[in-house]
């Protein structure tokens, strides 16, 4: 079992995942397994931000700027969602840091 995702990690959407939008919700398909995933409004926003490699700490800051949520809750829910997406293989962690 690998360690959980932390604020210092750089994450990006996996290749092999295609996505579209229905009623403002991102719907992603893992082409290999044919499993479909749906993201809620906030999840969809996070997904859009992960089109390019992004540092998790930067993701949190962008969410705090956009949604009315306190820092601790935001961080906890972000890491929980990223953990799930990572477990399902929908995102991957990058070794090298992204450029600021």
């Amino acid at each position: 079992m690998s360690r959980g995702i932390g604020l210092g990690d750089v994450v990006v959407r996996s290749t092999g995942v295609i996505e579209t939008e229905v009623d403002g919700e991102i719907i992603a398909l893992d082409v290999e397994t044919a499993v479909c995933y749906g993201l809620n409004r906030v999840g969809s926003h996070i997904w859009r931000l992960m089109a390019v490699p992004v540092r998790v700490g930067d993701l949190r800051d962008q969410l705090l700027a956009r949604f009315a949520v306190d820092a601790a809750t935001c961080e906890q829910e972000l890491l929980s969602l990223l953990g799930e997406l990572d477990e399902q293989g929908l995102i991957k962690r990058q070794e090298q840091p992204a450029r600021a």
Binding site: V22, D23, E25, I27, Y37, G38
Partner: peptide, 11 residues
């Protein structure tokens, strides 16, 4: 049904 729920139901 909307969004993901609608999509899943159609599948």
């Amino acid at each position: 049904l909307a969004g993901f729920a609608a999509t899943q139901a159609l599948v």
